[in-house]
Design a binder for these strands. Structure first.
Lengths: 252, 252
DNA sequence: CCTCGGGATTTGTGATCACATTATTTTGCC
DNA sequence: GGCAAAATAATGTGATCACAAATCCCGAGG
């Protein structure tokens, strides 16, 4: 198996890294509600670690835009607006289009096979109405392409962008996802990778992102807000503890 | 005065933020040598603060790619390779081209005036052979354009990319910079902004970045390395203290 | 019933300490 | 004198504590 662009912190076993991975997982799978307040001590309590690694992990996520911090120091899951979605759409079209174009020029046979496998699994999950697996496989499909581009910095940037749009991608279900244009587009993308046609690969990737995020932008209310804030945080009076099941520390 | 995209941490007076700004300044102005080892305690000693804010600032810079951390836990200024420059070139062409295109559609009269002013100051500095001011004004010119795009996430991404290429931009002096194509290109970019011609603005910006970073990539040696490592760190035996003059804590 | 104030609580920030691991220097042997 | 091994120093990591600012809660006053 050829090695593909491996995240540089693959062997990082520090608590900070585990907390970071846990929060990232929780964010992308939608276990935090938009607008929800998330305190350092709460996370530290649930994960059973001290404040130090939590602070560093959450500060990084703030820097990446996955959390936002008010000037009056409180960390929240960002609310999404139409303008923000449109900005992210245009950025993602550029970067993920670039990655697809590079992948068309650089992908190995095995890497293309990975892409193809993910595409098949999307169809299977979708036929079963399994939205969670569907989303997971869509992610694998995209990142199989991006990994094939062999550009580590580009991959890191794209991961950061997915972290910001991720919690809102479930808004695509079930209405948008039923369109038959998705599978056809993915097939054309695979064909372009196979043929080494960078321009076509870029075009297909751009179209995919444009369609999905334009749809999400269209869900905004008259104020431009999408998926409005949950009624604040269900304030925990008791001290949080492991097993609160919001998320878990992922041990490797 | 119309509001333009203001950095979200404009009013952040925390030590962490000041350390972050100081290190960023030191990196972009080339006060750290590529490959140089930079320890937490060293920075803390020079800036006269404890490890805590230094750790958080440097961890963020590692996440942004401005420092790199070996698995055997030592933080270094990254070495640049031809492949990395070419990857950054292509990413920057996409994102800064996008920003220029957006700026052409959104720039106000005052924002265009800012761009024009920076362009004039580049010419002045260059005629004086003042490389440091030249670099500073080139940066101001570019970011005046990006700010006019009014896209905060895009601006943040571009800042991160400049942080990575910044220390190597002085390699453009004095040979590359003497080309007369730079000023003419900037004028065409200004004209495109004025005319609201997004495609032309994007083209000029892309050409500018392509020329500069392709030149830098061409400076690589036979191993693909650019500006090889300085002879390790001038190891400090005595404990570092304020006034070591490598960089200073910027107090607001 | 709503509004405003004041005290208790929560929460992020920064400093300090202990510890394990890595790096460096010194020592001892051939 | 050269080299390996032990000792010493350096360094990142995580926990804990103190503190100030922000927030929350509750009751007095209208």
């Amino acid at each position: 198996m050829p090695r593909i662009a491996t995240p540089p912190d693959a062997a990082d076993t520090s608590l900070r890294q585990q907390v970071y991975a846990s929060l990232r997982e929780a964010l992308t799978s939608g276990r935090f509600a938009p607008g929800q307040k998330v305190t350092f001590r709460y996370v530290a309590g649930v994960l059973g670690v001290s404040l130090t690694p939590v602070r560093e992990a959450m500060r990084r996520l703030v820097a990446e835009g996955a959390f936002e911090m008010n000037p009056n120091r409180s960390v929240r899951v960002p609310l999404m607006t139409r303008d923000k979605v449109l900005e992210l759409r245009d950025i993602r079209m550029e970067l993920e289009g670039l990655a697809a174009a590079k992948a068309a020029l650089a992908a190995t046979r095995n890497q293309i096979a990975e892409v193809r496998r993910a595409a098949r699994e999307i169809i299977v999950a979708r036929s079963r109405g399994d939205g969670a697996t569907d989303r997971q496989k869509v992610r694998e499909f995209h990142f199989a392409v991006y990994a094939a581009a062999g550009q580590p910095t580009l991959l890191r940037l794209i991961e950061g962008l997915w972290l910001q749009t991720g919690p809102y991608m479930n808004l695509l279900y079930p209405d948008f996802i039923s369109s038959p244009r998705g599978p056809a587009g993915r097939q054309r993308l695979i064909d372009a990778l196979q043929a080494g046609d960078a321009a076509a690969a870029r075009r297909e990737m751009e179209n995919d992102i444009r369609r999905a995020l334009s749809y999400v932008a269209g869900l905004a209310d008259e104020n431009g807000n999408i998926a409005p804030a949950v009624p604040a945080t269900a304030r925990k009076r008791r001290s949080p503890s492991a097993g609160d099941a919001i998320f878990e520390l992922r041990v490797n």
